[in-house]
Amino acid sequence: MQIIAKGLNFVYNKKTKFSVKALDNVDLTIDEGDFFGIIGHTGSGKSTFIQHLNALVPVQEGVLKVGDYDLSANAKKDKKALKTLRSKVGMVFQYPEYQLFEDTVFKDVAFGFSNFFPQASKRETADAVYEALSLVGLDPEKYAERSPFDLSGGQKRRVAIAGVIVTRPEILVLDEPVAGLDPKGKRELMKLLRTLHEKESKTIIIVSHDMDEVAENCNKVAVFSEGKIVRKGTPKDVFSDAEEIKKLRLDLPLTGYLCQTLKSKGVNVDCDLTEEDFIRKIQEIKRG
């Protein structure tokens, strides 16, 4: 499923004195199979934008197409189609473990599945839940019957993600998926997302504050600032203008910083900002 947004505008508290412009003429295309990074400061419109993708926030003005679903401001609203859309666009909010509510891991993961597929048999539900748990790296035999509230922080988050991917969404949107985890937890979760991306060929969209994470994993990036998209493209394109990134008060990824510094000293390292490519290019330069 491809996502096409054209001229999206969104204002909170419209027509009151507290009105805030959250999206300002946003144009963006996200292709099937992209690992897409969305960056920008808190309050730049990122969250509002991603919540448009499964109609949690309705389009006020502009065109938005998610696969065959037309969510544009003037398109006809169809409740049933909306449900199908939400099963295909999985949304993992910040600190998703705070939304767990059932007394067993199994029931919590099954919640979304039963909502979207009320006709599914017990067998089908169990299969889907077990598969989702395996995908997030939790052994179903071991965890399915445990209370989610007894798990560690990292495990709770995995359960919450399993509860979203259980419907096999084609697009998975995650708002700061690794926030608050320890380094090992972060590393493992990013690895999980890469696996989902490769094995299941899902479109993955992450909102992130960690530029290294974005440079290392994403093939495309969009930078939000005050409701507008101010830069978009490959990490290399987006981080090429160090001055502009500084002006937006964002950081460069480590590889980007190094390329920039080396360039100012007259050494041109032409890499795609992943560490692997950076090392390769340094080797090449060294060899001459």
Binding site: Q51, N54, L56, K83, R86, S87, G90, M91, F93, P96, Y98, Q99, F111, G112, N115, F116, G163, V164, T167
Partner: peptide, 16 residues
């Protein structure tokens, strides 16, 4: 704010 967030998250999981 938290209530709002939870409602959205459960809606995204098909909660009605």
């Amino acid at each position: 704010e938290e209530t709002d967030r939870i409602i959205r998250a459960q809606k995204a999981r098909g909660g009605d």
